[in-house]
Write a protein that binds this DNA or RNA. Structure first.
Length: 648
RNA sequence: GGGCCCGUAGCCUAGUCCGGAUUAAGGCACCGGCCUUCGGAGCCGGAGACCGUGGGUUCAAGUCCCACCGGGCCCGCCA
């Protein structure tokens, strides 16, 4: 007999037995039993604290209740349970039949192999995971790098859970930022990229932003001196100074591009109006602007695909935001919204009253908003008729829901308001179900010590650079530790070690928590890192190669060591950890689990011999345990997109 | 002004959703051991935390509730 979820077998058996006894002994007490993991193996493998509650309701001492329960519980017919005891102030502790439990766990893992732990849902659905979606105007930088890592891990995990998963990249080519880069790129005469195309475009974008912002701010300040308060003027002045210092840096680093752009832009009386013009033309689908912006976007996307490919991340669909403008989906949505009571003109601007929708349809609670919080309205269209980001996101989201039942957007946590407004717009259009199945998976941007990364100001470290550095450092480690490997071997190993370390570091931390970027933090090759787990996996593989046999004579009764039991328990619990990680979108649970298992395994490795253990039935049992551990480590790493190597 | 997120040893993190066991779990850095027979990217030991503060709920609070403090973010005809 094998099981897809050995620990759940044990848990279910205990819960049923306990529930049964409770309804017999205390028919008037209604309480749901929920078994916990005890803090210490002395207390068994599962424990219940129901007696405290029963004690309160019946006026009896919890320990007395526990003893009564234990007396009435006949576990002799439950193969996985060895014993039940009353302990502490009133706990009921279930002790597993470890011989049987070990056999079930190890055999189940060896039988299921690569599928072990990936418990399937009963009703799989289609899920779109939209992630990364970095604007095609600059390279992916490390500030955004949690996005692809988390998004990919979530997609892998949901797929392993049995869902039909589609990975989408939203190419945001319509906004103001695209017009800015188009303006600069054209001024330079559409130059051929030097180096990686997205990096090249990123530089032009930053210089163009910088020059146009300085131009704009100077005008605004001049105006403000006459009309606004001194406080406002000095705020603007500080902003200008910041851009001026950006300009100094840029000119020093990219003298030629900077000077040429500065010269060209200075010929325009009003760059802002040129940029606004480009936005209008692009939305209208004017051919020249169309090919210009598409050309730039393609350059960047080529770079993105290379970067993400190096990280082992791919997409099923690349969705152009502009296509929803040009095929008039945006227009249709807007006109439909206008027929609702929630849209009105404020001056020339089209506004959406998100708060009114929430109140009318009584949605505040459902979306986790306080009743008395007034949701700000959303601007749908500028005075010149062009649209804004969230507006275009409405038809895009509807399109996604025509392909899937659930949509998960991996987006930075600075955008919860926009996501809420989007949901309310969907509701206003009658798509309440879409709104409820739309998940904003928020993550905190990676920061640099002292300040946040800003693409517009060129203050960022590219993901490419970090990955290169990761691989370079890994190469140093490999050369130091295994100098005799061939050059090719070293390159291969340093690649998966370096990338693995980076991925692990970005996925390991709770996405809500801020991460401050330091090289040491992100490139860790010691304990609590991907390389540590990979190393443990390779070690297990090494033992199996040396053994070169099937553990046919394994006798699991002989696995009596505490460390062996600890490992078996962890192996058995992997399916439950997986389910929790998948259903609650918590890939960091997988990372934690893999590290804890590797840790246990290394302790075991040092304490007990596998190949030289006597008798052979014990040696084989340990060998089977090693194999099971290797499988689970590999399956866990696989969910994070981290390679589990045979050697390193 | 309103809203969201975070606060656990010198530093970084787990545990908080769903409250349970007189030792709050790891890592980095630090100190002392182990070239160990299957790989030292390792193992063993030591030291280091009144879980931001103050109240409250409970038989039981790092975990739930309230207030406050500190840090980050959002409230744009940017995305």
């Amino acid at each position: 007999m094998v099981s897809v979820n050995p620990f759940a077998e044990f848990r279910d058996a205990c819960e049923t037995a306990l529930q049964d006894v409770l309804s017999r002994l205390f028919p008037n007490v209604f309480i749901s039993v929920r078994l916990d993991l005890p803090p210490n193996p002395e207390f068994g493998e599962l424990a219940s604290s129901v007696c405290f509650e029963i004690g309160k309701q019946t006026g009896k001492k919890p320990l007395v209740v526990a003893k009564k329960i234990v007396e009435a519980l006949d576990v002799s017919k439950i193969p996985l349970v060895q014993d039940v005891t009353a302990a502490g102030g009133g706990y009921v502790n279930f002790h597993a039949n470890l011989a049987e439990f070990s056999r079930l766990t190890i055999e189940s893992i060896r039988a299921s192999g690569k599928k072990y732990g990936y418990v399937k849902v009963d009703k799989p659905i289609k899920i779109i995971v939209e992630h990364t979606s970095v604007n095609p105007i600059h390279p992916i930088h490390i500030g955004q790098a949690r996005n692809p890592m988390l998004g990919d891990a979530i997609a892998r995990t949901l797929k392993a859970r049995g869902h039909k998963v589609f990975r989408h990249y939203y190419i945001d080519d319509v906004g103001r930022q695209s017009a800015v880069i188009a303006y600069g790129y054209e001024k330079l005469g559409k130059p051929k990229p030097e180096g990686k195309p997205d990096h090249f475009i990123g530089v032009i974008y930053t210089i163009t932003s910088c020059l146009t912002e300085i131009h704009r701010l100077k005008k605004v300040i001049k105006n403000a001196r006459e009309h606004s308060a001194a406080e406002e003027v000095s705020r603007l002045q500080r902003e200008l100074n910041d851009w001026m210092s950006v300009a100094v840096d840029l000119e020093a680093k990219y003298a030629q591009l900077f000077d040429k752009l500065a010269e060209e832009i200075s010929k325009d009386e009003d760059p802002e109006s040129k940029i606004a013009h480009l936005i209008r033309e692009y939305e209208a689908g004017e051919e020249n602007v169309k090919s210009l912006i598409r050309e730039i976007s393609q350059l960047c996307i080529g770079g993105f695909k290379e970067t993400l490919g190096n990280a082992g991340i791919s997409f099923d669909s690349w969705d152009w935001e502009s296509s929803f403008v040009w095929n008039s989906d945006v227009k249709k949505v807007l006109s439909k919204l206008k027929t609702t009571p929630y849209v009105m003109h404020v001056g020339q601007v089209l506004e959406f009253d998100a708060d009114k929708v929430a109140r009318d349809l009584d949605l505040k609670q459902a979306f986790g908003v306080k009743e008395d919080y007034e949701i700000p309205s959303l601007t749908l269209a500028r005075a010149d008729g062009t649209t804004l980001y969230t507006t275009r996101d409405i038809p895009y989201t509807i399109w996604k829901f025509q392909k899937a039942e659930r949509v998960i957007n991996v987006i930075g946590m600075e955008q919860p308001l926009a996501q809420l407004q989007l949901k309310l717009a969907l509701c206003a259009l009658g798509h309440i179900d879409y709104a409820k199945n739309l998940t904003h998976f928020a993550y905190n941007l990676v920061r640099l010590p002292g300040f946040r990364m800003e693409s517009r100001k060129g203050r960022y470290i590219t993901l490419d650079k970090v990955m290169d550095e990761a691989v370079r450092r890994a190469y140093e480690e490999v050369s130091k530790r295994s100098p005799r490997l061939s050059e090719e071997e070293k390159r291969k190993i340093s690649n998966f070690v370096g990338i693995g370390a980076l991925k692990y570091a970005l996925v390991e931390v709770d996405p809500n928590k801020p991460v401050v970027f330091t090289w040491d933090r992100v490139l860790d090759f010691e304990k609590n890192s991907a390389p540590y787990i990979q190393y443990s996996h390779a070690r297990a593989g090494s033992i199996m190669r040396k053994a070169a046999r099937e553990p046919k004579s394994a006798d699991y009764v002989l696995l009596k060591e505490r460390l062996e039991h600890d490992i078996i328990l962890m192996l058995a619990r992997f399916p439950e950890v997986f389910i929790e990680a998948a259903d609650n979108l918590k890939p960091n649970l997988i990372a934690d689990f893999a590290n804890a298992l590797a840790d246990k395994f290394n302790t075991f490795y040092n304490a007990h011999s596998v190949l030289k253990a006597k008798p052979p039935q014990l040696s084989d049992a340990r060998l089977a345990l090693v194999e099971a551990t290797k499988i689970v480590l590999s399956n866990a790493l696989n969910l994070l997109g981290i390679k589990a190597p045979e050697r390193m």
